[in-house]
Amino acid sequence: MTGLALSEPALQPERRSFASRIAPVTPVTASAAPALQLSGISLAFGGIRALKDVSFDVRPGEIRAVIGPNGAGKSSLVNVISGLYRADTGRIVLGGESFAHVPPGRLPGLGVARTFQNLALFPGLSVAENIASGLVFRRPAFAWLPFLPASRREGRATAIRVREIAAFLGLEAHLPRLVSTLPFGLQKQVELARAMIADPRLLLLDEPMAGLTGTEKAAMAAHIRAIRDRLGLSVILIEHDIGVVMGLSDRIVVLDHGEVIADGRPDEVRRDPEVIRAYLGPDAAPLAGAA
């Protein structure tokens, strides 16, 4: 997947060089500085406490699943990390900076990209334009004005990059189409492409499998693994379906009623009595095969 490397100087991110991150990912060493650290995050809507003192970290190159039953606070957590909600207490450490509230507009600059549980594409734009929108934040000032050489250069460089990403996710044939005319499964992939195009270091995927068919789920899982393996980025994977994440993630956080009730490797989490209770009720037998 070296094809994903940037070939255009205009697009080189100011942050550390892309090439250094292509190195194949070896088992994650615990000593590396975390890609994300949450400590003591609490959030309440009116009287309802959506998150209670949530703390965990994400290591570089790790797929970190956050699971839990509906209403456990998973989406609230993503929205806190991406700055759409403001946590009442706690700190978020991202890219070496510590925040009480992450300004959403700064996310791409911090190397964070996300997808949304319910698609958040731009229906009025083509697939290519939707993917390209992930690079707008890097565009030089005034490069949006017509008739400027800089705008033209930027446009060409973006188009090349869009093709690379589209090829990686198998979306090439659909590039000129209006995104709203695509089937749901493909739209989900377009959203993934939009998130990936700026080479994030941390990818937040909010229920990427929701609404997909079995085949599409398998394809999406393969994509997520391929992205991590080839680019070495960290992934936070939000899912309510515990089966999906077992084979895919390195470590799993389990939320219930806004609290972390378990945190560990898939096989540890699977055996955790608290998790079994949360998912299946107090009298359930251990999750035999866990899907």
Partner: peptide
Amino acid sequence: IAVRDNETAAKVIGVP
């Protein structure tokens, strides 16, 4: 069009 179609998504991906 990003601002018109989905302001939240636009903000998160860094559209000014």
